[in-house]
Simulated assay, not measured.
Amino acid sequence: MSDEQAWDARYAEAEHRIWSGNPNVELVTEVADLRPGRALDLGCGEGADAVWLAGRGWQVTAVDISGVALRRAAEHAADAGVTVEFQRHNLEQTFPDGEFDLVSAQFLHFWAEFDREKILRRAAGSVAPGGVLLIEGHMDHGPFAHGDNEGKEIHFPTPDEVIAALDLGDGWEVLTKAIHPRQQKGPDGDLITRTDSTVKLRRNGF
Score class of each variant (00 low, 15 high):
T158C: 06
E136P: 00
V103Y: 10
S66P: 07
D3I: 13
R88C: 03
A165H: 03
R10P: 15
D97L: 05
I192K: 12
A14W: 15
R72P: 01
I135D: 00
L175W: 10
D101L: 02
R72V: 04
E46A: 03
A123K: 11
Q184V: 02
D140W: 08
W111F: 14
A77G: 02
F95C: 06
T195F: 02
A77N: 06
N204D: 12
A39K: 06
E46R: 01
E75L: 11
G55M: 12
T94C: 04
G131M: 09
D8E: 15
D8R: 09
E153S: 15
W52N: 11
H146T: 01
R17G: 07
D196C: 08
A80L: 07
P187I: 13
R88N: 08
E136T: 03
N22P: 00
N24G: 08
R122S: 01
A14G: 01
F144S: 10
W19V: 03
T61N: 06
A74C: 06
L27D: 02
Q5Y: 05
W7T: 02
P36H: 04
R17Q: 11
I179Y: 03
N24L: 01
V174W: 04
Q106R: 09
T198N: 08
L70A: 00
T198S: 11
R35F: 13
T94W: 06
D101N: 09
